[in-house]
Write a protein that binds this DNA or RNA. Structure first.
Lengths: 249, 249
DNA sequence: ACAAAAGTGTTCCTCTTACACCCATGA
DNA sequence: TCATGGGTGTAAGAGGAACACTTTTGT
């Protein structure tokens, strides 16, 4: 038997999702209002969408359930990020709220944070609005419920890291996009200005970014070429050749 | 109240630790024998060290507890990796074993995998041996208990990824090491051969790897210079300048 | 003197940077 | 015709890759 001085019961697990979107200008995160009718007076506040998980589901399914309910989208890019496990992370009023909301009586809740990326199109925006979600530009996020500010900070770091490891930029953009849109996205994520000639060269050298025979229409300037991300080519070309670059600087 | 069709009870969380070490020649992982006196006949098999977590501890503390018990070492590099949450990941005999071992009755167990690196010195080796742990060279790992082979595969991927992001190589090596030792480590991790002239140049260009006034002794060849990892310089120099390299290839 | 591993330099090539002007369109 | 953003080329520099011989020690 395990160490008898330890107790192994009464813990619950939730998922919280940090859903990011790019509106062409800024990075936004999806938040929901916490309904706290049961809890005394305080004004409602914002939190990341989340849920306790049920006996039968794994974490990814739970995260899919949460994001689907709020956005209507079925195939969202989702990645497990980190577990927040401080036994004191939820207590007092916060814990009471969870217990009353879910009809349970837990003494602690661990949360597994998922990281999600969506394309912010009209359809999705209006679905989210109907469901009570709000998109908040990252620099405008104020105090969130629970420890969700802390979670968001880590998720932003993780976003920047992932951008360097996988071509996830395209998860943010419509199927057809211009190089300028892509550049703007990189500029926002890394908070830098990028020379567009160099950026073009770089992107055009990636074989998995393919021009399509379509241009912008109805714009008061030279219409931009549309490009598309070719997943098949990416998968094929993705063997990187040997370089000493893997030695950490 | 949450979706009343879901049930939120009877779940437990464990940590499992993939502890890696480098013996100068190979990468090894720390395994323990599962004692299964209670379970019928089968021969004991190997697993990753782990434990259910208790009500009062967070995950990192639990991982520290597990690794400390087995290695005697107090300050081990530990990093949370991934949660394995398939509701069916542990069932039947495996689940019975957990329930009888810990004196609980759970219907599922999630596990949070931690990733750990240690310096394989004499003291640690003998402590581990006394505690019943074994170091197994990565290519010699056979069938493990539970889903631990799956976990190990992910942990190895993660090791390779981390090597490119942080200078964790030094966590494997003694305080003073030779460039050849460091090179061998990179060769094993990335499974490549590295030209030693180029590798030297690269390492000597890193200001945080400092020569000390000490050389190998009692070797039947030109004694190698010892170097050391200077954490302070690393922290200071760690602002990388802007490069388009962040655009994913 | 020999075996064994440490240590050293140069050339070529690729990738990154910095930088300024013309082009196509709608209004 | 003008305002707006799209699209283009070149030269200089930094870093990575390929490559073979000399040095220092113990035996």
């Amino acid at each position: 038997m395990g160490d008898p001085s330890l107790k192994y019961d009464n813990q619950a697990i939730s998922v919280d999702c940090t859903v990011f979107g790019f509106d062409g200008k800024d990075l936004c995160v999806l938040l929901v209002e916490r309904r706290r009718a049961q809890v005394s007076g305080e004004s409602d506040d914002l939190k990341l969408p989340g849920s306790l998980i049920s006996d039968a589901e794994d974490l990814l399914s739970a995260a899919n359930r949460v994001t689907r309910e709020l956005t209507g989208a079925r195939s969202i890019y989702l990645k497990q990020m980190e577990v927040f496990s401080d036994p004191q992370r939820v207590q007092g009023q916060e814990l009471m709220w969870i217990n009353s909301y879910y009809g349970v009586s837990l003494s602690r809740v661990l949360t597994v944070v998922f990281f999600a990326l969506v394309k912010l199109d009209e359809k999705l925006m209006s679905y989210v609005k109907r469901k009570g979600g709000v998109w908040v530009e990252l620099n405008s996020v104020r105090q969130l419920a629970l420890d969700h500010n802390k979670i968001l900070v880590k998720a932003i770091d993780y976003l920047i890291l992932l951008f360097q490891q996988e071509p996830i930029a395209f998860k943010f953009l419509p199927r057809k996009f211009t190089i300028k849109q892509l550049q703007k996205l990189y500029e926002v994520v890394f908070d830098v200005e990028i020379d567009n000639r160099n950026f073009r060269k770089k992107i055009l050298s990636l074989e998995y970014v393919q021009p399509i025979s379509e241009h912008e229409v109805m714009v008061a300037h030279k219409p931009a070429q549309y490009y598309t991300f070719d997943r098949k080519i990416y998968k094929r070309e993705n063997k990187r050749r040997f370089k000493l670059g893997f030695v950490y600087k």
